[in-house]
Design a protein around this nucleic acid. Structure first.
Length: 566
RNA sequence: ACCCCCGUAGCUCAGUUGGAUAGAGCAUCGGAUUUCUAAUCCGGCGGUCGCAGGUUCAAGUCCUGCCGGGGGUGCCA
């Protein structure tokens, strides 16, 4: 990696400046006229050492040598521009193509992380608001696994909250058993919505709901049986959706899993003097950390989600001793996790704890919620996506058998929905529109899937027309501007994967893949390969093949499938 | 009231953590197919990066203040 090399060169040339070099980076240039990569560290260093930046950059450029680098030039106020060596680049393409991991290292080898994502609430339908945690979390899961991490993905279901008091109360007073049979989740949702509404208007009803919750948490057999039934019904629906989304978890441990530890957590906190009684509740005060107080037991005796999350962290540390625990949730939980992490540390937890939050999804007319009943169900979104994709497939490939068309429509439709979420900065707010969610052209999954399918087609045509040709016998040579640009981009795959994982932003990989596909499409359009002379032909087909391998692997890391024909 | 995000082309968004002339897609206008998949490619149009200061060789990016939007702030999760 060029950054390491540059950092080493700087350190050797300027031993007096060790500290400031840790974040030194080599990055791609703003424009091809500046070479392939650039390093801007000389200018910052010059300030600290009170030296002339151009002279300083010149000293680096004069001594630095690397097998992959053809040329180093100092430009402007002190940029060091780096141009890769064509022969090295060609050989590197061959190395990548020969490696199933495409020369991506395994920095996570021997390390363990727990990834907590998706985590829908039981007895409510999964709606479009759940897709972000599920899709972003799953991409982070795949990225880290690929980098060698032992990832333990955990679906921390919301199966133990106050909502169960509301639902149990509603169920006992007005369940429609027939509806529960045919549309279980819809019926549970209806019960919840109506019981919630009544609890807002009728204090007695609200109190009864609380009592039901307390009974459930105390182990009342009737309520426990109802609760189990709700969980099973919900898991049936969730599993169906996860299967469609190609999402799998190592564990599905809901909040209820930690129930028997909650009292212990509160006990630990109080005996350590970290929490005390206040207005009937048990509260951890975090004034030193400038955080609001954190409730760990309500005045009615029930525990709340902070308690559960603290217990969960303790259990995970005891059982798996991970290097870090990562939570993927929406932005509203930022304060909650700050509090939970702080309290956990006070209890002696040393594990790195990260909260990866993403912006809330909204409808153009405002927020939606189960309580309001204005949600768009996730299944409906997936249905719409597939049917829209199917219409396009039928139009574009009428000769394709119907079952193949359906298969393509699935990959394209689901891929488009996932990509729409993964391709933008997770932290920006998303306003849901059907048009955006179902886009099939431009910067979208189908664009990448299309590029991949064309590559597969080229490879098949090549095998058909030149059956005796041995690709591996021909070196990859980069002669055309378009193919060189493609190769430079291809060489950056490992960096893109590592950067996306380390910053918890799958969008960085999505951006990379889109750039790669754009360069490929341009190459495809402007440079002949099956019709090129022998030697060039094989070289270009090999470069095609490598591009295809990167697209396939990269998309799979985002949880998006590829088809040989679309 | 306080805290956290966001504000970039008509619309939706990137912008590699301070770098060179701010980039894509959609929309719009024009061009490319006897050829390896036109779900494509090539080009045009489109910008006081919310506003005002500040920090320095360099600010969309950092600091301060304001404006606008979203979210949060002990008994929901």
């Amino acid at each position: 990696m060029l950054s390491d090399w540059m950092r080493k060169t700087f350190a050797e040339e300027f031993p007096e400046a060790q500290e400031g070099l840790a974040d030194l980076r080599v990055m791609t240039t703003a424009s091809p006229e500046f070479g392939d990569y650039q390093c801007n560290a000389a200018m910052g260093l010059a300030r600290r050492l009170k030296q002339n930046p151009r002279q300083l950059a010149g000293r680096i450029a004069g001594r630095a040598r690397h097998e992959s680098v053809a040329r180093l030039e100092v430009a402007g106020p002190g940029f060091i521009n780096i141009t890769l060596d064509d022969a090295w680049l060609g050989a590197h393409m061959e190395r990548m193509a020969a490696d199933p991991d495409l020369c991506v290292p395994k920095p996570g080898s021997g390390r363990t992380m727990i990834l907590d994502y998706s985590s829908p609430n039981v007895a409510k339908p999964m709606h479009i608001g759940h897709i972000r945690s599920t899709v972003i979390g799953n991409a982070l899961d795949r990225l880290h696994r690929f980098l060698g991490w032992r990832v333990i993905s955990d679906n921390h279901l919301g199966d133990w909250g106050t909502q169960f008091g509301i639902i149990i109360m509603g169920f006992k007073k007005g369940v429609d058993l027939k509806a529960l049979e045919s549309e279980p989740i819809d019926e549970l949702e209806r019960i919840y919505r109506e019981s919630y509404k009544r609890s807002q208007e009728d204090p007695e009803w609200l109190d009864a709901c609380r009592q039901e919750l307390v009974r459930l948490q105390a182990g009342d057999p009737e309520n426990l049986a109802l609760w189990k039934r709700f969980v099973d019904l919900s898991m049936g629906e969730f599993s169906r959706i996860y299967k469609r989304l190609d999402v799998a978890f190592d564990m599905v441990r809901g909040e209820s899993f930690y129930n028997d530890r909650l009292a212990g957590v509160v006990e630990q906190l109080t005996s350590a003097g970290l929490a005390r009684e206040s207005e009937g509740a048990i509260v951890a005060f975090l004034d030193d950390e400038k955080l609001p107080p954190c409730l760990v037991r309500k005045s009615d005796g029930a525990f709340n989600y902070a308690t559960t999350d603290i217990a969960t962290i303790q259990r995970r540390v005891e059982e798996f001793n991970p290097e870090l625990i990562v939570y993927v949730t929406d932005e509203r939980q930022q304060l909650h996790f700050k509090q939970v992490f702080t309290v956990s540390r006070k209890l002696g937890v040393k594990t790195r704890l990260d909260h990866v939050w993403f912006g809330l999804m909204r409808l153009p007319e405002g927020t939606f919620s189960t309580r309001e009943g204005n949600v768009i169900k996730l299944e409906r979104l997936l249905d719409e996506a597939e049917s829209k994709a199917l219409a396009v497939v039928r139009e574009a490939s009428p000769e394709m058998p119907a079952d193949r068309q359906a298969e393509v429509a699935r990959a394209v439709g689901i891929g488009a929905v996932k990509y729409a979420d993964l391709s933008q900065n997770p932290q920006s707010l998303v306003v849901f529109t059907w048009e955006k969610a179902l886009a099939l052209n431009g910067n979208s999954a189908p664009y990448l899937q299309y590029a991949y399918a064309r590559i597969r087609s080229v490879q098949d045509k090549f095998a058909e027309r030149f059956p005796s040709s041995d690709l591996a016998a021909h070196p990859i040579r980069l002669t055309e501007k378009h193919e060189r640009a493609l190769a430079v981009k291809a060489a950056g795959f490992a960096d893109a994967v590592m950067l996306a994982a380390a910053s918890f932003k799958p969008s960085m990989l999505a951006d990379y893949l889109y750039d790669l596909a754009v360069l490929y499409s341009s190459f495809y359009q402007n440079v002949p390969f099956l019709k090129a002379d022998a030697g060039f032909r094989e070289s270009r087909v090999r470069l095609c093949g490598l591009t295809g391998a990167i697209l396939r692997k990269g998309l799979s890391l985002l949880g998006i499938g590829t088809m040989d024909r679309i």
